[in-house]
């Protein structure tokens, strides 16, 4: 849409170089915890980018992205549990720990869930849409909280990461690079998507749905398709996060998680692909930093909340928008 200033491209390349070199830097600094923090950042970036497809590009205020993120996570955990006990899920679906089976399964689950939630919630718009997506996500939170065979309220541990032929994902560095590769691939796919015929229609719907009807476009189908794509992306992120943390809990589905993902998108810059990545890295990093302040760590959400209010009131276009204005 707009030209990207050349200096910004350089910053992007520098960021990419930094991400590529990060595990080595962590080793040099003697702090391997960096790698897992960075992995979390990238996974949240993936979740935020997928949310931005509907939120930023489609203009649909969805407050339930955690539903897809959580369902992706639970797919990994549930398939692991059934693999461990050798009892098929619902008596037919065998468990698995194969990355190339589990991840597509998670995305499928996210897509199906998004189709169901979207089909209902997209019958409304605006504030109703927002409240409905929030409510359905919360419904899943209650559902998974009550499933005691999968840990109920407390969640459950997934003792091992999924297996990828030829890669040792137990190694944090290998897993980090895999996540980085997936994020870059997702960004490329999203880039093609928003520039395609479909992406144009989606952008048109955001700007003026009445106009779209007047050129013969039935918005509902396109919004639903975008919602399903976003749901699959969210589920992918959730599945990766459970692999990273080796743990799943209903917290992944809690409404504040949806809120956090929205903050990432808005903080970084909605309606762009790089914005949500910047937002996710910034917010995750900030939470990590604030969490280290002795005595105040547990109240870090105060700072996050305040930041959010300020960004909404005064920061148009988020960090990415600010960067672009500075560099122009």
């Amino acid at each position: 849409m707009d030209e990207t200033p050349a200096s910004l491209r350089w910053i992007g390349l520098a960021l990419l170089a930094l991400l590529l070199a990060l595990p080595s830097l962590a080793t040099l600094a003697g702090d391997p915890a960096w790698v897992s923090l960075a992995t979390r950042m990238l996974i949240y970036a993936l979740a935020a980018v997928s949310l931005d497809i509907i939120l930023g590009y489609g203009g649909l205020a969805c407050f339930g992205h955690a539903a897809f993120y959580g369902i992706g996570g639970y797919t990994v955990a549930i398939l692991y549990r059934h693999w461990q006990t050798s009892e098929p899920l619902f008596g037919v679906i065998p468990g698995s720990t194969q990355f190339l089976v589990v991840i597509p399964a998670a995305m499928l689950a996210g897509g199906v869930l998004a189709a169901a939630i979207g089909a209902l919630s997209l019958r409304t718009a605006g504030v109703q849409f927002l409240m409905i997506t929030l409510a359905f996500a919360q419904m899943l939170f209650f559902l998974f909280s009550s499933l005691s065979q999968y840990g109920g309220n407390d969640g459950m541990t997934v003792r091992r990461r999924n297996e990828f032929p030829g890669l040792d994902l137990r190694d944090d560095t290998v897993f980090y690079y895999l996540v980085l590769a997936i994020l870059l691939a997702a960004l490329f796919v999203a880039h093609r998507l928003v520039g395609s015929r479909f992406g144009r229609v989606l952008g048109g719907i955001r700007q003026n749905e009445r106009r779209m009807a007047a050129i013969g476009v039935q918005s509902y189908r396109y919004k639903l398709a975008a919602f399903v794509i976003a749901g699959m992306g969210g589920a992918l992120a959730g599945a990766l996060m459970v692999n990273q943390a080796r743990f799943v809990s209903p917290d992944m589905l809690f409404w504040t998680k949806s809120g956090e993902m929205m903050i990432m998108v808005i903080l970084g810059g909605a309606g762009t692909l790089i914005g949500p990545v910047i937002g996710a890295i910034t917010l995750t990093g900030l939470e990590d930093l604030l969490g280290r302040i002795p005595g105040w760590g547990e109240h870090k959400l105060f700072a996050i909340g305040l930041l959010l209010v300020l960004v909404v009131l005064f920061g148009r276009g988020g960090l990415y928008g600010w960067l672009r204005r500075r560099l122009r």
């Binding site: 520039g195 015929r197 479909f198 144009r200 048109g204 779209m212 050129i215 013969g216």
Partner: peptide, 21 residues
């Protein structure tokens, strides 16, 4: 872009996710 979108809509569905408009 505004006009192209109308042409695109006339040509049929827009479930084409890849090629750059």
């Amino acid at each position: 872009d505004n006009v192209a979108l109308a042409v695109q809509a006339r040509e049929g569905h827009s479930f084409r996710f890849w090629g750059a408009v």
